[in-house]
Every structure is written in C-alpha cells, then in structure tokens.
Write a protein that binds this DNA or RNA. Structure first.
Length: 375
DNA sequence: CATACGTGGTA
DNA sequence: TTACCAAGTAT
C-alpha cells in the first residue's frame, strides 16, 4: 500500500469531483438528498445492480412516500413491493427501522454514522452513505466499489473478503474525504467503480483518475482487489408437493428465520433427509411414495394418498450457497385428512396475484401449469 | 470471524 | 453450465 501527500490528495479530490459534476449518473434517488430517499435507495442497492433497483425504487416511493407510511404499512404489502428483489430481511429491517424512527426518535433522523448504526439493517456502509450524502458528514462509505477503486489506486493488497480489512480502507479513505463535499466524493467513487474501474474489463486508460491509479500505472491492475473465493453452492435435491382441492393449492408457510423466511411455498421435502429417515433405500417410486406419506404424517399429521411423480424436468434454482433441484410430486389429500396441525393455507388462483412469492416458487407455479396441474 | 442470506447479468 | 459479480448486514 502506498501513501499520498496532502497535495496529491487535494489534486485527486478536484479531479474526481470535476468529473463527477460533469458525468454523474441521473438516478431517481439523486433528485434530492432527503434521508428517506437516500436510505431506501441504499438498502435496495445492497448486493443489487442499479438497473434492477430503479423500477423497484419508483414503485416503492409511490406506495410508501414517507417514513410514517412505511412504519404503518401492512407487511404483506411491503413484501409484495419487495417481491423479486431478494435478501428479504432487508425489507423487514426497513420497516423495523421506520418504526424505530417514529417511536424512539420521534421522527427525527440521527445525523451521524454512529447514530444511524442503531437502526435495523443499517451497517457500516449504509451508515456512512446516509451520513455523508444526506447530512454532509465527512465519513467514508466503503462498499464493493470503494474496496475495488482504492485497492487499485493505493495498491492495497489486504484481502477484502476479511472483515478486519474494512478498517484498513476506512482509515485510508478517511484521510481523503473533502470536508465540503463528502457525499459527492463517496458517490463519485461509486460511479467510478461502475464505469471505468469495473471488476471485469476495466477501462483505466480512459479513466479520469488514471494518473492516480498506481496499480494501473504499474501494470498490475489485474491483481487488485485481493479477494478470496467463496465456495460453490451445494446441490440439494427436493420434492415439492402439489396438493389440490378443486382449483386451490395447499401452501406451507416457511419458518420465520432462515432461507426464504416467512414465505408461502409448496411443501418441500429434502430427499436426503427423506432417505435418511427411511428404513430402506428409496429406489422404487413405491418406496418414495411410502416415505413421503410417512413424512407428511410425522411432520404435520397430514394424510396423503395417490402420490404421483410427474416426470417433468426438474426445476432448478440457485441461491448464494445452495442449488435446489426440485421434482414436482402430485398428491391427493385423504378424504378424512385433518389440516388442523398443518401450518398452511389453501391458495386460491385469485390470491396468487396478491401474495408475494420468492422466485423459486414462481418457477414451481410455472412448472405446475406446464404439467396441467393448475389453472 | 465465517457463514447465511436472493436474484439477475455477463463471460 | 459454471464462475463471479452487484451501492452489505446480521449473527
């Protein structure tokens, strides 16, 4: 890692901000610096691309225009607004933070990064972003862009996948913050990171700050940032149950923590767990069918009959750490089946449009329709 | 500290 | 298809 003199820092600030004044992106959340607008956009932008966020942001602001509206929103409406964006705890934390603002802070925003950190879902990056953009505080906002940009500018070779590395970057960036325009500085770094100083195929030869890019000048730009790789998603085989009653389908509410927390999906069984719980190898469909019936009875006192394996191709869905491979299974409910132990509900076709579903469930709906199992 | 947590885009 | 990336946070 290299050090810059005060005069070089000054020159960098001027070059960067002059470029930003000319070339900054025209984004919906940049129409003003209202903390509510900055906050919602920053949460949506976590691990999510600008192009994906724009339509969600516009709809969200139309539906929940103020902190109070968000605090008082129905959770089902909120989740429907967030449907498809992923990382759904972001939406739930958003509402919790709105309620914190209304009740704990009487509607008055904390103006410092430390104060903002008290709000649900606001970590070190988002606190820095809101504090600098909305409140003019000279604090860094260290996101993936900042890691990438400054690792190249200063040849910082600490592993950005390690949590402790954040403090190294925060300290380095803190010394560069211009006292008069910290918000613009942080946003300029992000624009730089998404234009010239990209992760793949950077165009540093035309970058406005190429003269400051030490890694580029040394011809070692491809060595930065240093980042250890993440493990590949683990394959998981599942069975999804399509249980019908007329035109309705039986859906199961997932636990309130963990993957797709709180969402309604087809009941799903992990094939490996089913196998482990079985007394014999599940080689025949009749064996699988028997194991499935026992599973439903053990788990929910749910009696299933006429279990059929559809044979259609598997539905696959990949998360950050899991790869689901799902086979659809049609089952009938025994005529005297007792649903009182089943934490589920019958879903009408009309309710499908009103309810928020995770992407994997919409894929399962699509497959069920293709197999003429619904609608 | 390492891992869980969604989805869509690109090479 | 795999691999990796995209304005991270909670536990």
């Amino acid at each position: 890692m290299i050090e810059w003199s005060p005069s070089k820092i000054k020159a960098f600030q001027e070059t960067l901000l002059a470029w930003y004044d000319k070339e900054k992106r025209d984004l919906p959340w940049r129409r003003d610096h209202a903390p509510y607008h900055v906050w919602i956009s920053e949460i949506m932008l976590q691990q999510t691309q600008v192009q994906t966020v724009i339509p969600y942001y516009e709809r969200f602001m139309a539906q929940f225009p103020t902190v109070e509206a968000l605090a008082n929103a129905k959770e089902s409406d909120l989740m429907k607004a967030w449907e498809g964006l992923g990382y759904y705890s972001r939406a739930r934390n958003l509402q919790r933070a709105a309620q914190q603002l209304v009740t704990d802070h009487h509607g008055v925003w904390p103006t410092t990064a430390e104060g903002l950190r008290e709000l649900a879902g606001i970590g070190p990056y988002t606190a820095g972003a809101i504090a600098s953009i909305a409140f003019g505080q000279p604090v860094p906002a260290v996101d993936g862009n900042a890691f990438r940009v400054f690792s190249r500018l200063l040849e910082i070779d600490d592993d950005i996948a390690k949590p402790k590395t954040r403090s190294v970057f925060e300290a380095a960036i803190q010394r560069m913050m211009p006292a008069d325009r910290p918000g613009d500085f942080n946003q300029a770094i992000m624009d730089l990171g998404s234009s010239y100083m990209t992760a793949k195929n950077p165009d540093s030869a035309h970058s406005p700050v190429k003269a400051f890019n030490q890694a580029y000048l040394d011809g070692i730009e491809d060595q930065f940032p240093v980042k250890t790789k993440k493990p590949r998603p683990v394959p998981v085989d599942l069975l999804a149950l399509v249980i019908r009653r007329g035109d309705q389908l039986l859906l199961l509410k997932r636990p309130n923590s963990g993957l797709l927390a709180g969402f309604w999906t087809f009941p799903m069984v992990d094939v490996a767990e089913l196998q482990a719980a079985s007394e014999r190898d599940l080689v025949l469909e009749s064996d699988l069918s028997r194991a499935l019936q026992k599973w439903a009875m053990d788990e929910f006192k749910l009696a299933l009959t006429a279990i059929g394996f559809t044979g259609g191709q598997q539905v696959t869905h990949t998360f950050t750490h899991r790869k689901w491979r799902i086979s659809l299974v049609v089952a009938d409910l025994a005529v005297d089946a007792d649903l009182s132990y089943f934490p589920g509900q019958w879903l009408t076709p009309k309710a499908v449009a009103k309810t928020a579903f995770p992407k994997v469930q919409t894929k399962l709906f699509d497959q069920a329709r293709a197999l003429k199992l619904m609608e």
